[in-house]
Design a protein around this nucleic acid. Structure first.
Lengths: 216, 216
DNA sequence: GTCTATAGGCTGATAGAC
DNA sequence: GTCTATCAGCCTATAGAC
C-alpha cells in the first residue's frame, strides 16, 4: 500500500505527512457519519450534499475533495450497511442445529431491518442503480453481503448433509427463498404503515416455522 | 349523487352541462393516463406536474383544476393499481382446491408485480405516506386491496374448514405470511439487479410449495 | 484544502390576465 | 378553464480566489 509520502516523493517530514493524512481520513469519516445520520433520520431522498456539508461544518464544495459525487457517498453507506448486517447475523452461527440457526437468522435479519430502516431501504429497496454500481465496481473479495448469504445457504447445506432435506434440493435456491421471505416481512413493514396487521415478530415466527417445517 | 347542474341550480340547459362535465372528466382521465405512462416508463420519482402537463398538452397550472396537488394524482394511480391487482388475482378463485388456488395466487401475484414494476413500487415499496393517505382518506367500502387479500386469507380459511391445517391457526396471520413471502420475491427482483440469481418463477414455486407443504 | 459565488438545472404551486 | 409569468425553493457540481 502506498502512502502519501511515497507517492509525493518527499518522505523527510514523515510526522507531518502522517498527521495530514490522518486529518484527511478523519474528515472523510465524519462526512460518512453525518450522511449516515441524515439517512437514518430523514431517509435517503433527504440526503443532499448541502445538508452533509452543514452537518460537518464545511462548505459543500469541500465534500468533492473526499468523494467524487453524491452517489459515491451513498455507495459507501450501502457497503457499511452490508457489514452491519453481517455483524447482526454472525452470532447465529453458534447454533449447531441448522433449523434453530435458520430460525435465529430469520429473527436477526428482521430485527436488523426494522432497527435500521433507512439503511435497509438503501440496501434493498431503492434504485437498482445503487446496488448495481456496488456490485459492478468491486469484484468484492471480502463481500459482507455474500458472507451474510452464506450463513443462510450454509445452514441449508448442513441440513442436506444431515439428511433432513431432500438430497437433490439446491441450497442456493433454498437460501434465496428464505432470504426473500424474511425480506418480504421487513420491506412490507417499512413501506406500508398499516398493512400487515400482524406484528413482525409473529410474522417472522410464522414464516420461518412454516417454511422450515415444509422442508423436512 | 349530485350533478353539476343540481349544484349550480340551473338545470334548464341539461345537454350543455352534461357535455361540459363529460369533457371535464375526460381531461381528468387523460391526466391520469399520462401520469400512469410516465410512472411506468420512468418511475415514480420522475413524475412531475410539468411532464404530465406536457403529455396532455395543457399548461401545468391547469392540472390543479382537476387535482389538488401532485400527491392526489399519485394516490389515484395507487388506487387504480389495487384494482389491477385484484383483476390479476381474481381468476385464481376458480380453483376449488385451496392449495392449488394458493399456488396460483402466488404465481399471479408475482407476475403482476414484475409486469407492472413501477405501479408495484408505488403501491408497496415507496413512501409510507402514500398508502397511509390512501387508507386514511377512504374508509374503503370497495377496497380492492382488501378483496385481494381476502382471496388469499379465504383460501386458508377453506383449508382450515377441510381440516388440512391446524384448527387453531389464524387465517389472517397465515394470509399475511403468504403475502409477505411473495412480496419478498417481487420486491427483491425489482430493487436488486443481480441479487437473487434464481429466477422469479423458480423462487415462487420453491416458496409456495415449501410454505404450503409446511402447513399440512 | 477550503472557501465564496454561481452556473444551470430542477421542483410544486399560485396570482392574475383573458 | 386555461393561460403566462413567476415565486420561492431546492438540487449537483464547478470555477476561481485565497
Amino acid at each position: 500500500m502506498l502512502t502519501v509520502q511515497n507517492v509525493k516523493g518527499y518522505a523527510s517530514k514523515m510526522g507531518t505527512g502522517e498527521r495530514k493524512e490522518r486529518e484527511r481520513a478523519d474528515l472523510r469519516g465524519r462526512i460518512l457519519e453525518a450522511a449516515r445520520a441524515i439517512v437514518f433520520a430523514e431517509g435517503a431522498s433527504a440526503l443532499t450534499m448541502r445538508k452533509i456539508a452543514e452537518a460537518v461544518e464545511y462548505a459543500p464544495a469541500t465534500l468533492y475533495q473526499h468523494f467524487e459525487n453524491r452517489e459515491a457517498i451513498v455507495r459507501e453507506l450501502c457497503l457499511a450497511g452490508f457489514h452491519e448486517l453481517l455483524r447482526a447475523l454472525a452470532p447465529c452461527a453458534s447454533y449447531d442445529d441448522p433449523l434453530a440457526r435458520l430460525e435465529a437468522l430469520g429473527i436477526a435479519y428482521v430485527r436488523f431491518g426494522l432497527e435500521r430502516p433507512e439503511t435497509y431501504r438503501l440496501m434493498f429497496m431503492e434504485d437498482p442503480a445503487i446496488t448495481a454500481a456496488l456490485y459492478g465496481s468491486l469484484a468484492e473479495p471480502d463481500d459482507a453481503g455474500e458472507q451474510s448469504f452464506n450463513l443462510i445457504a450454509g445452514s441449508f447445506e448442513t441440513l442436506k448433509a444431515r439428511g433432513q432435506v431432500a438430497e437433490d434440493a439446491d441450497s442456493k435456491v433454498l437460501g434465496e427463498t428464505f432470504w426473500a421471505a424474511v425480506h418480504g416481512i421487513v420491506s412490507l413493514k417499512l413501506a406500508c404503515p398499516h398493512y400487515p396487521e400482524t406484528s413482525a415478530e409473529v410474522l417472522t415466527a410464522s414464516m420461518t416455522r412454516t417454511l422450515l417445517h415444509g422442508l423436512t
